[in-house]
């Protein structure tokens, strides 16, 4: 991964081939500008999450370049909520960890903030993990299937809230729901085609 001053883009990905033991995706090209919401689309197994992990330092970059604006702060929400087993951390403590606040949280999640995360449903946990990323003091949020496990009101909330956040941060978004991507993103990059 190269640190690179590259005009005003937060992130400039050029001919990126990424993977784990061997490359699984690429070459991929895109840029992310400040205030932009960029979507990744593609079939299952195309390598969308791998590109996202390469940006977050969790997958290997085999070739190409990944230029980041110096000092870029990034948060990454994983496709599946982290297995928390019996960890006694509450929702409020999770938000405090990333520096996320409680202002703007929907009413249906607020009463649950004091509960341990391992006692929340999959959808409630997923929503809090997304919130912990998008409300954290970061420049770029990487959201991998943020609507997974969410019910209709959770998805509706993100449909309204994500575009509202553009003035504060840029986002890269993966979703299997093409309608969701079209409704939220400025641009959609096809991965694996």
């Amino acid at each position: 991964m190269s640190e690179g001053p590259s005009s005003e883009a937060l992130l400039r990905v050029t001919d990126l081939r990424a993977g784990y033991r061997t490359p699984v995706v690429g070459p991929v090209n895109f840029t992310v500008e400040a205030g932009e919401i960029l979507g990744f689309n593609g079939p299952n197994g195309a390598g969308k999450s791998t590109v996202m992990k390469a940006i977050a330092g969790g997958a290997r970059v085999f070739s190409g370049s990944l230029g980041r604006r110096p000092g870029l702060r990034v948060a990454h929400q994983h496709q599946n909520p982290m297995p928390l087993e019996d960890i006694p951390v509450s929702g409020r403590e999770l938000l405090q960890l990333t520096g996320a606040g409680e202002d703007g949280l929907p009413e249906w999640i607020r009463p649950l903030l004091g509960q341990r995360l391992d006692r929340l449903s999959g959808g409630q946990l997923q929503f809090l993990q997304v919130w912990a990323c998008i409300d954290a003091p970061v420049d770029l949020a990487l959201l991998d299937e943020p609507t997974n496990n969410l019910d209709r009101k959770g998805i509706a909330y993100l449909l309204e809230e994500l575009p509202r956040r553009r003035s504060k941060l840029a986002m890269v978004l993966i979703s299997h729901d093409r309608d969701f991507l079209d409704a939220v993103c400025h641009r959609v990059v096809e991965i694996g085609q």
């Binding site: 977050a56 990034v74 982290m82 951390v89 403590e93 970061v138």
Partner: peptide, 14 residues
């Protein structure tokens, strides 16, 4: 705690 709850929180920001 961050490393456990969000494993690539630090690496994502380099």
């Amino acid at each position: 705690l961050l490393e456990r709850m969000l494993p690539d929180f630090f690496s994502a920001s380099g």
